[in-house]
Simulated assay, not measured.
Amino acid sequence: MTNGLNFVALDVETANNQRGSICAIGGAIVEDGKLTGTFGTYCKPPEGLDHFSPFNTMIHGITAVTVANEPQFNDVMAEVVQLIGDRTVIAHNAGFDIGALRSACTHGGVTWPEWQYGCTLVWSRRILDLISYRLPIVAESLGIVIENHHDPVADAIASAEIAIKLAERTNSSTIAELTDATTTRLGLMQPGNWRGCETIHSGSSSQPEFAGANPDADPNNPLFGHRFAFTGALSITRQEAWNLAGHAGAIAEKSVTKKTTRLVVGDDFSGESLEEFQTKKANKAFMLRAQGQPIEVLTEQDFYELLAQTE
C-alpha cells in the first residue's frame, strides 16, 4: 500500500550547457500513491543564460521563438514554489534538476526554496539491476511508457510513476520508508545551503583508496570509489577525463577490466534505448554484466552531470 506516498515530481529542460538556463519546467503531483495532477510551462531563461544551443534544441525542440512570449523564469519559479508547498520533491537525476534550479535562482536573484528532495535514479540503482539508469531505460524496465521523452511534463510523470513502482517493490508506503529501504537520505535545498540525495554508507569508516584517486574527495559523491573506463571520442581529451574522475575520488582505467564499474561512451552515444547498448562499444559491458559484474554504461553528459554533483 502507498496511501502515504505524497510528493511532487519535477523535470526541467535547459537552453544550453549552462545549468541555470532553464527554459521549461514540468511537474507531476502524487497524493496517496496516485497521480492527481500535472503542471508545466515554458519560460525565458535568466538573463545572461538565455541563448539556445543547437545541441539542446535538437534534444527537446525548444527555441528562443518558443519562449518569446512566455514568462520569465523568476515568475514561473514563484508559481512552482507555491504549487509544491511543503511536499517532498523528487526527480530522476535530481542532482541535475535541483542543481539547475539552484543556478537559475542564483542568476535570477531568487532565494532558494526550502525543499527536501529525492532521486529516482539513486533509488533505481539501489533496487534494480540494469545496464543503465537513464530515465527511458528505467521506465521501460518497469513497464512505464514515456509519451514524449524530453517534454518536461511527460518526464515528470515518468519520474513519478517510477517512484510509485519502486515504493511498491520495497513495500514502502511513504517517501521516508522508501529512503530507508534504499539506504539513502533525502537531499536538502534551503536558502544558502544544500546537500545531495545520497546513499548512506555503512560498515568500516575507512574508505576505499585507488591509485590515482584523490584521497581528499568527498566519499559521499557519486563518483567516489568507482572505476571508470572511457571509450569513443569525447569532447575533452582522454587525459582530461581521467583527471576529472581521479579528482572526484574515482580511478580511471585505460580499458574495460573485470574491476570496471562505470563505462562512459563517447561518439554522441545517447543511451536512449537498449538497442543502442548493443554496439561494439558497449558490448563488453553487457558481457561483463552477464558474468555478474555490476557495471553501468553512461553517456558523456551523464559523466558531466555526476561531476557537477561533486562541486
Rank of each mutant, 00 (worst) to 15 (best):
A167K: 05
N148L: 08
E140G: 13
E114S: 11
G95C: 07
N220H: 11
T2C: 12
L5I: 06
H226D: 11
S159F: 01
D129I: 04
G225P: 01
I144Q: 10
T174Q: 03
K280L: 04
D302F: 01
T57F: 05
K284N: 14
N171M: 11
G249N: 06
I137L: 12
R19W: 13
E140K: 15
G61E: 03
F303L: 13
T2S: 15
Q72V: 14
D151T: 12
L288S: 02
T182S: 05
F210I: 07
L288V: 03
N214H: 05
R227V: 05
F303G: 09
T182Y: 05
L188K: 10
A233G: 01
L10F: 12
A68D: 09
L5G: 04
W242L: 00
T179N: 09
P54V: 02
T38H: 05
T106L: 00
A160H: 09
D180W: 00
A160S: 10
R262Q: 11
G212V: 00
Q278V: 11
E114D: 09
S173R: 13
F277L: 09
M287Q: 13
Q293R: 03
L306N: 06
D75G: 06
H92V: 05
T179C: 11
V265D: 09
A176C: 10
V122A: 15
G187H: 01
V30I: 13
I25M: 13
N6G: 06
T2M: 14
H226P: 05
L142S: 06
L263G: 11
K280T: 08
G118K: 05
L121K: 09
R102Q: 09
L49E: 08
E168N: 15
W123H: 04
M58F: 07
L288K: 05
D302G: 08
D75F: 02
A241G: 02
L274H: 01
A158E: 13
K284I: 15
H51N: 07
L307E: 01
I137H: 04
H60W: 02
D155P: 03
E168I: 15
K44N: 11
Q72A: 15
Q239V: 15
L49G: 07
G212D: 04
L130W: 11
I157S: 13
T257E: 08
D218K: 03
F39T: 06
G246F: 02
G27T: 06
N69R: 14
A217R: 01
F7R: 03
D216Y: 10
E296N: 03
A104I: 00
V145H: 15
P222E: 08
T179K: 07
G143M: 10
R169M: 13
V297N: 02
F230G: 03
G48Y: 04
G266T: 06
V122Q: 13
H247I: 08
K284F: 12
I200L: 14
I251G: 09
T199G: 14
E177G: 06
Y42G: 11
Y304S: 02
V264R: 07
K165V: 00
N283I: 13
A290G: 09
